[in-house]
């Protein structure tokens, strides 16, 4: 586990992968992709870090308690946003005039969809990390 080439390449690539994942999540409502794809890319970046620098370093950067909370929090945010529509007299996930619609094609548009995308992205990314940690755990 002392490979300088691997360390250097991963240090160069990690910021690019993370920024790409965030880009996919934030543009989920105007371009292909969205919460799941972007979250999977973010999760892949975290797993790459864990594979390269060892599980101890990855648990230090992203402890299991944090990933568990983010995982549940993403779902709760999604359900909470959905319930706003239910409370205001529509179906689940109805936009009852709460979220501004904006101009189509802009990043700041689409009502609640960007918020849902961010929630899904955080959930999927931390789920991948939790899965990986659970798999590599010593019995």
């Amino acid at each position: 586990m002392n490979d300088r080439l691997l360390y250097t390449i991963v240090k160069l690539m990690l910021p690019v992968i993370v920024v790409y994942g965030i880009f996919i999540i934030l543009h989920g409502h105007v371009t292909p992709g969205g919460g799941f794809s972007g979250g999977a890319i973010l999760g892949a970046a975290l797993i790459l870090y864990g594979l390269t620098f060892g599980q101890d370093a990855s648990l230090k950067l992203f402890p299991e308690s944090v990933s568990k909370r983010l995982e549940s929090g993403g779902v709760l945010v999604y359900i909470g946003i959905g319930l706003i529509g239910l409370v205001l007299g529509g179906a689940f996930l109805t936009n009852a005039g709460v979220f501004p619609l904006g101009d189509p094609g802009n990043i700041l548009s689409g009502g609640m969809i960007p918020l849902l995308m961010i929630a899904i992205g955080i959930k999927v990314g931390s789920t991948m990390m939790t899965l990986f940690n659970a798999l590599l755990e010593d019995e």
Partner: peptide
């Protein structure tokens, strides 16, 4: 392209 992106991230990566 949507499915392609997910396939590349999940299938080839994770």
């Amino acid at each position: 392209p949507d499915v392609a992106l997910t396939e590349a991230a999940v299938g080839a990566g994770i």
